[in-house]
Measured scan of single mutants.
Amino acid sequence: ATVGSICDLNLKIPEINSSDMSAHVTSPSGRVTEAEIVPMGKNSHCVRFVPQEMGVHTVSVKYRGQHVTGSPFQFTVG
């Protein structure tokens, strides 16, 4: 992922509605921003955001307030 470019995290989660999901990204400096959740068809969801700084980011994806399997996810920008 690169700073200022759209970053997509694709998840396969069976039998949940994306409208019941939420996602937030925490940057290396601790800034928390909301991420967009895009339905991608049956059981597939895309978490979309634009990182604003380099370094390790943490993406928390929740369904009805509970982390989904594997969340929070970490990835490096830059």
Rank of each mutant, 00 (worst) to 15 (best):
S22P: 12
G55N: 10
E53N: 06
G65V: 09
V32M: 11
S71F: 02
P72V: 05
E34L: 12
V50L: 09
V25I: 09
T76F: 09
F49D: 03
I13N: 04
V25Q: 06
T2Q: 09
T69D: 13
H45C: 04
G4C: 00
T2S: 06
R48C: 00
I6Y: 09
G55W: 04
H57W: 08
Y63R: 10
V38I: 10
M54E: 15
S29T: 15
T33C: 10
C7W: 07
T58A: 14
S71T: 07
V47Y: 00
K42Y: 02
N17I: 03
N10D: 07
G4S: 00
V3A: 02
M40L: 05
G70Q: 14
G65N: 09
S5V: 02
A1H: 15
Q52K: 11
N17T: 06
G4P: 01
V25D: 08
T69C: 09
I6H: 05
N43V: 06
I13H: 00
S19A: 13
E53G: 06
P51A: 11
E34R: 11
S44I: 01
V25A: 12
C46M: 02
S18C: 07
T26F: 12
V61I: 01
I6K: 03
K42P: 09
S5P: 01
G4L: 01
S29F: 04
M54T: 03
C46A: 07
V47F: 03
S5F: 05
R31D: 15
N17S: 11
R31W: 11
V25M: 02
I13C: 00
G78I: 01
I16A: 10
Q52D: 08
T2V: 05
R48H: 00
G55V: 00
Q74R: 13
T69Y: 07
C46S: 15
K42D: 12
V56D: 13
K62A: 12
C7E: 00
P39M: 08
T58V: 13
V32S: 09
H24Y: 13
V61C: 05
E53W: 05
V68L: 02
I13K: 00
A1K: 12
S44H: 14
S60E: 11
V50D: 01
Q52G: 13
S44A: 04
D20N: 13
E34Y: 12
G70R: 10
S44T: 10
H67P: 08
V50S: 02
V50Q: 04
M40W: 03
P51T: 00
E53S: 11
V3C: 04
E15N: 13
V25S: 13
M54K: 13
S71L: 02
V61Q: 02
P51F: 15
A23K: 06
V68D: 06
G41S: 08
S5E: 14
V61A: 10
S60T: 09
V32Y: 12
V3Q: 05
Y63N: 14
H57G: 07
G4T: 01
C46R: 14
Y63A: 15
S18L: 05
F49H: 03
K62N: 12
H67E: 12
Q66W: 03
S71K: 04
C46K: 15
G78L: 01
F73P: 02
N43K: 08
H24A: 09
T26M: 10
G55P: 00
V32T: 12
N17H: 07
S60R: 08
V56H: 11
V77G: 04
S18I: 01
H24N: 09
F73T: 04
N43P: 14
I6M: 05
G30D: 10
Q66L: 08
G70E: 13
K12F: 10
P14L: 03
V38K: 15
S71H: 04
V77S: 07
C7H: 01
I16K: 06
L9F: 00
T69W: 01
P51H: 05
M54Y: 06
E34S: 11
R48W: 01
V32Q: 12
C46F: 01
S27Y: 05
A23N: 03
A23Y: 00
C46P: 06
V59C: 02
D8G: 13
S71E: 04
H45N: 06
T33F: 09
T69K: 11
S44R: 13
F73E: 04
R64T: 13
V68K: 03
I37F: 13
G41H: 05
V3W: 03
T69H: 05
C7Q: 01
P39N: 11
E15Y: 10
P72R: 05
V56S: 10
N43Q: 11
P51G: 12
S5A: 06
H57C: 14
H67A: 12
H24Q: 09
I16L: 09
G4N: 08
Q66H: 09
I16Y: 11
V38D: 06
S29R: 05
V3K: 06
S60W: 05
M54C: 09
A1E: 08
T58P: 15
G65H: 08
K62T: 14
R31E: 12
R31G: 14
E53M: 13
T76K: 09
G55I: 00
N17M: 07
R48N: 03
V47P: 05
S5M: 07
Q66M: 10
G70L: 08
V47W: 00
H24P: 02
R48T: 01
G70T: 09
C7V: 11
V50E: 02
Q74A: 15
P39D: 14
C46W: 00
E53P: 00
Q52M: 14
R31M: 08
M54W: 15
P39A: 10
H24G: 10
K42T: 09
S44P: 06
I16C: 00
C46I: 07
V61T: 05
E53Y: 03
K12A: 06
Y63F: 12
F73L: 02
V56W: 05
H24D: 07
I6W: 09
V68N: 03
G65E: 14
H45E: 05
G55T: 00
H45M: 09
M54P: 15
H57V: 13
H45S: 10
R48P: 01
T33I: 14
E15F: 14
V59R: 01
A23I: 01
H67F: 02
M40V: 10
S5I: 02
V59F: 01
I16F: 02
S18A: 06
I37N: 05
E34N: 08
G41F: 02
F73R: 03
V59N: 02
V25N: 14
S71Q: 04
T2G: 04
E34C: 11
Y63Q: 10
L11S: 15
G55M: 02
F49A: 03
N10S: 14
M40H: 12
G4D: 04
N17L: 08
F75M: 15
K42S: 07
S18N: 06
I16E: 03
P51W: 04
S60K: 09
T33L: 11
F73A: 01
K12V: 12
T2W: 05
F49K: 01
H45P: 15
V3L: 06
